[in-house]
């Protein structure tokens, strides 16, 4: 066999595998949309579940997820962006920097359920927040810190070094340089990281299992010390805990969750594309 025809066969196999790898995304989305779209209506999105969650809507779960995501963003973004600024703009190449980097890698690898344990031990019990929006948001925030740090750091380091030199050469201080030159040019990249965090936080179940999520609540939370329902938790509950629930309701819930996550993700993808096109340097 000639090396050309060998190449043809090999590339055909590679193409086939790649199709196999990417097919599931399409299948998953198609299945969920097809099976779940029938359940989606205004009532489903805006009312409380009824009759042991077999009927009615999923409004409190949607609301709870939005609360948790907002809380996670509030806690994780300042800390994550601050850490990225430190690593990219202030830190020298020393032991401390290496330790921080190691810690971030480690945080990114800790299993989500271990975050659940940590959040329960620290926020729920030790700090006595109870199972609450506060405890859940904090747990999600810690878990998503590496995402924000990594994305922000990448965005900061994409700002060309000479800009910093010019600013400093004009007598600006380091913080002025970061504030007026580096950050404005890194904002789109940082936002992309935040959006990715949002989408991850919205879909996570294990970290909120013991820190916030309720199986069923008759009302909306009135403070950050209340429990809430959450979409992924709700999907888990109606899939595994409640018999005789219609498949369409379950698919509908999955569709809402997936739709939310994908919507947020496509923001990030579109934003990055625009950013790449607009960049001048």
């Amino acid at each position: 066999m000639t090396s050309r025809s060998k190449e043809k066969i090999a590339f055909a196999i590679l193409t086939l595998t790649t199709i196999l790898v990417t097919m599931p995304v399409i299948l998953i989305v198609a299945t969920i949309v097809k099976q779940g779209i029938g359940a989606i209506n205004i009532e489903f999105l805006t009312t409380f579940p009824r009759n042991g969650m077999r009927e009615g809507g999923i409004y409190p779960a949607i609301f709870g997820t939005l609360c948790l995501v907002a809380g996670a963003v509030v806690f994780a973004v300042p800390l994550g962006v601050g850490a990225a600024i430190y690593l990219n703009e202030y830190a020298g190449e020393n032991l401390l920097t290496r330790l921080i980097r190691l810690a971030i890698i480690n945080l990114a690898g800790v299993p989500s359920v271990v975050y659940g344990l940590f959040g329960m031990g620290l926020f729920v019990i030790f700090l006595n927040f109870g199972a609450s929006i506060l405890a859940g948001s904090l747990t999600l925030a810690v878990m998503n810190l590496p995402v924000i740090i990594t994305a922000s750091k990448e965005a900061l380091s994409a700002v060309p070094q000479p800009f910093r030199e010019v600013s400093l050469s004009l007598g600006a201080s380091r913080w002025q340089t970061v504030r007026h030159i580096v950050l404005p040019n890194a904002v789109p990249g940082i936002l992309t990281g935040i959006i990715l965090e949002v989408s991850r936080a919205a879909g996570e179940t294990a970290p909120i299992l013991f820190t916030v999520a309720a199986f069923y609540l008759p009302g909306l939370p009135s403070s950050v010390f209340n429990q809430v329902m959450a979409l992924p938790m709700h999907l888990f509950a109606i899939s595994t805990q409640i018999p005789n629930i219609s498949l369409e309701t379950r698919y509908g819930t999955a569709l809402v969750l997936l739709g939310l996550v994908f919507l947020v993700n496509s923001f990030a993808i579109v934003m990055r594309a625009i950013l790449r096109r607009r960049r001048k340097w």
């Binding site: 000479p162 800009f163 030199e165 010019v166 600013s167 050469s169 004009l170 030159i181 040019n185 340097w281």
Partner: peptide, 12 residues
Amino acid sequence: VGIVFALPLPLP
């Protein structure tokens, strides 16, 4: 003591 660099470097 200001400086003008070799390559023109306008800020964005």
